[in-house]
Design a protein around this nucleic acid. Structure first.
Length: 480
RNA sequence: GGGACCGUAGUCUAGCUUGGUAUGAUGCUAGCCUGGGGUGCUAGAGGUCGCCGGUUCAAGUCCGGCCGGUCCCA
């Protein structure tokens, strides 16, 4: 009856509006009173928790420890590395007063913590024995978004992790950069079921202050690219101004080699966009706060008792198997309402148990990915359910990978390039390596070099812009 | 950076042109009914009309500023 409860626009007709409705109506988030800030509601936060614990476990296995840094950074410290500071200063929030007293060295609300972390590291690191130092920080960062904000994708404060490591050699630091990017890739592909393209950023797009930035990029349904996570090789760019040095085995004072890397709740935004449909969220089972929802259906009182008993038993069995299971025994809603409600919230698998099922010793399964229903016997149902959840996870990834493949094209002709960029494509094109050509493309088409893929294919074709010999093939796309 | 639009109960919304203290739905509470795709009936509660100021006897309505949101383009 009242359609306003659900999503009122189609994903492929009004993508922006669809996204906004999904994040609000699935109760992931709500707007805070200050521009550009959002509140995470429990359902949204628990997705973040699963994502976080998945990354955290992988970081622990590879020898990283967690720490905590304060949110305020004095300007004198933030400005110590000049390019880094210039890059961030337009979006820094400043604290200028404590009470009524003006603060002389005003304080930045951290846009990122390199400067603060490394000023501490310089105190802690004296000898080669202190290395490597590998600390990760789960916190939030603040970057003022003046215009167009969007929940999870562009907000003035966001949850993330930032890792900061220090190494004795260049080689070891570069290896760390690669290890981290692989952790990110596994998390995003295996848990979020989103395929990514790995590679380096161009000089123009790299992290301000880094020697180079490695990245993973993915395509969204509107054809725009989303940066899913970055891992930076900082070289000695920060160790010199921040005096992060140590005595090596030969008793020679040496500047350390550093890395930094991060992923944010932007990944939740990607998750919503990539898998969602006209009915709302579609969550991959591995990060779904609720993996299985049981909807009991009954009319008479004796039916109700029997069905609730059977449903509770099933829930116990599934919980013992480690499945995050919820029984929706709300009496004030009809089954139809509940079906729509849980579909909007993206629960991967729904189980319906009603009077028609019990005599046949079966239940009805409804998959969120395909919206198909099927019967399942109660005997050893748990094994089949686990199998189906794995299938859903796999199916979502395959669908997304197929989309990425369909939207990726090799283009060597500039005219064709301009046309295909407008169609929302990832274009694999030859580039001479000159930043001028990169900027020209940006001006004339709005596309960036999203990533210079690691599996460097070099076609014989000349640079798509200047027609000089190309250095490498890169991926161009419009970005978020 | 440029532009367009919007803000009235938890949510959606009428009223604004032509100033006179706000309409309907949904949701909420209670009771009944119902239940396999967004149930029905009855009663009840729910409002600083985003905020500040101006014009006026009188402002949701007219004017200005601010805050917040949405979309499009670079």
């Amino acid at each position: 009856m009242s359609k306003e409860i659900g999503i009122t626009v189609k994903k492929n007709e009004d993508f922006s509006e669809w996204y906004t409705q999904v994040v609000i109506k699935a109760q992931l988030t709500d707007y805070a009173p200050v521009k550009g800030l959002i509140v995470l509601r429990p359902y949204g936060y628990s997705i973040w928790e699963y994502l976080k614990s998945s990354v955290d476990q992988k970081l622990k296995v590879t020898g990283h420890e967690n720490g905590f840094l304060p949110v305020l950074i004095p300007e004198s410290l933030l400005s110590k590395e000049a390019t880094h500071f210039a890059g961030f200063t337009p979006e820094v929030f400043w604290v200028t007063h404590s009470g009524d007293t003006e603060i002389g060295d005003r304080l930045a609300l951290r846009p990122t913590s390199e400067t603060l972390a490394y000023s501490m590291y310089s105190k802690w690191i004296k000898s080669w024995r202190d290395l490597p130092l590998k600390i990760n920080f789960w916190n939030s960062a603040l970057r003022a978004e003046i215009k167009s904000t969007k929940p999870f994708l562009r907000t003035s404060e966001f949850l993330w992790q930032e890792g900061h490591t220090v190494h004795a050699t260049k080689e070891e630091a570069e290896e760390e950069v690669a290890i981290i990017l692989d952790i990110y890739r596994r998390t995003v592909e295996d848990e979020l079921a989103i395929p990514v393209i790995l590679g380096k950023k161009s000089e123009k797009e790299k992290f301000v202050g880094a020697v180079y930035t490695t990245t993973m990029e993915s395509i969204m349904p509107d054809g725009k690219a989303l940066q899913m996570g970055t891992s930076h090789f900082l070289g000695q760019n920060f160790s010199k101004p921040f005096d992060v040095k140590f005595l090596d085995r030969q008793n020679i004072e040496t500047f350390a080699w550093q890395t930094s890397w991060g992923i944010s709740w932007r990944l939740i935004g990607a998750l919503i966009m990539v898998h969602g449909d006209d009915k709302g969220l579609v969550l991959p089972p591995r990060v779904a706060p609720i993996q299985v929802v049981i909807v009991p259906i009954y009319s008479s009182q004796p039916d109700k008792e029997m069905i609730l008993k059977k449903a509770s038993e099933l829930k116990e069995i599934l919980m013992k198997k480690g499945l995050r299971t919820h029984m929706d025994s709300r009496d004030e809603f009809t089954p139809g309402y509940k079906f729509n409600d849980w579909e909007m919230k993206g629960v991967p698998l729904r189980i319906e148990i009603g009077p028609k099922d019990l005599p046949k010793n079966k239940m009805v399964l409804a998959r969120r990915d395909s919206l198909k229903k099927s019967d399942l016997s109660f005997d050893n149902a748990e094994d089949e359910i686990i199998k189906i959840l794995d299938e859903i996870q796999e199916n979502l990834f395959e669908k997304a990978r197929k989309f990425l493949n369909e939207r990726t094209q090799n283009i060597t002709d500039l005219g064709q390039f301009k046309k295909e960029i407008e169609n929302g494509m990832f274009l694999y094109s030859p580039w001479c390596g000159d930043q001028k050509c990169e900027e020209l493309i940006k001006e004339s088409t709005g596309a960036d070099i999203r990533v210079i893929p690691f599996d460097e294919k070099k076609s014989n074709a000349p640079c798509i812009v200047c027609k000089k010999p190309s250095k490498t093939d890169v991926i161009f796309a419009k970005g978020y």
